[in-house]
Computed example of a mutant assay.
Amino acid sequence: MNISQRMQDAFNKQIVAELWSSNIYLQMAFWFRKEGWKGFASWMYKQAEEEKQHAMDMSNFVLMRGGEVKLTAIDAVKTNWKDAKEIFIDTLAHEQNVTEMINVLADVADEEKDRASQNFIDKYIDEQVEEERNVQDILDSFEHQSNHAVAHIDKELSKRQ
């Protein structure tokens, strides 16, 4: 079963976006470590690894379908934030952007009538709902607790498996 050139190109674009996502979360983790927030850093390290795994998963799917994976330049990421809350505001905006990109990928699969790709992409559509909700929950915690409770949020995030 071959993958169309258009579908392959769309996946390649998404693979690069997933790697960029990994880099932004890794940079956020580094910022948190520098600032002494080990729990937040741990959460972001896990996010970075998850995004890298998405890129690998998509790459394997393209290759399994007879396509070619082509990595292009990955843009630099933001490196500094004023506080933890700003990072999670940026994280939510980023996840919302990723949702849009996954939806575009799904649109291409629909237009190409590529059932295998449609099925494969469905798990990422579902995952984006969860990702946005998780980050919104963290932001809600910032809103509902005093600034002194940020350490509590940090401790809770360190428990992520």
Results as ranks from 00 to 15, higher is better:
Met101Gln: 15
Asn134Lys: 00
Asp126Gln: 08
Leu105Phe: 12
Asp57Ser: 10
Thr72His: 15
Val16Pro: 03
Phe142Arg: 04
Asp83Asn: 10
Lys52Gly: 09
Ala73Lys: 14
Gln47Ser: 09
Asp140Leu: 12
Gln145Thr: 05
Asn2Glu: 15
Ala17Arg: 11
Gly36Thr: 04
His148Ser: 04
His148Leu: 10
Ile87Trp: 02
Ala29Gln: 04
Arg115His: 14
Ala151Gln: 11
Asp110Lys: 10
Gln161Asp: 07
Lys13Asn: 09
Ile3Ala: 02
Gly66Tyr: 05
Met44Ser: 01
Asp75Asn: 15
Glu156Gly: 04
Ile102Ser: 02
Arg6Cys: 03
Phe30Asp: 13
Gly39Ala: 02
Ser59Ala: 10
Ala48Val: 10
Ile121Arg: 13
Phe30Val: 12
Lys34Gln: 15
Asp137His: 09
Met58Ser: 08
Glu35Ala: 03
Leu26Ala: 00
Glu50Pro: 02
Gly66Gln: 08
Tyr124Leu: 05
Asp140Val: 04
Glu156Arg: 08
Arg160Asp: 02
Lys52Thr: 10
Gly36Tyr: 09
Glu68Arg: 14
Ile102Tyr: 05
Glu127Ala: 13
Val135Leu: 04
Ile87Ala: 12
Glu112Asn: 00
Ala29Arg: 06
Lys159Arg: 02
Lys52Ile: 09
Ser158Asn: 04
Ala10Gln: 07
Gln14Lys: 00
Met7Trp: 10
Lys155Ala: 11
Met56Pro: 05
Asn80Gln: 14
Ala48Phe: 09
Phe40Lys: 01
Met44Tyr: 00
Lys34Gly: 13
Trp81Val: 06
Trp31Glu: 11
Val135Pro: 01
Val16Glu: 08
Ser141His: 03
His94Phe: 12
Asp126Glu: 14
Leu157Gln: 00
Asp107Lys: 15
Val98Asp: 04
Asn103Leu: 08
Ala10His: 08
Asn12Thr: 05
Lys46Cys: 07
Glu86Asn: 01
Glu131Arg: 02
Gln8Phe: 10
Leu139Gly: 05
Tyr45Glu: 15
Met64Arg: 14
His94Thr: 08
His148Gly: 11
Asp75Val: 06
Lys113Ile: 00
Ser22Gln: 14
Leu19Phe: 15
Lys113Cys: 11
Glu131His: 01
Val129Thr: 06
Asn147Ile: 15
Asn12Met: 09
Leu105His: 12
Ala55Trp: 03
Arg6Ser: 08
Ile87Gln: 04
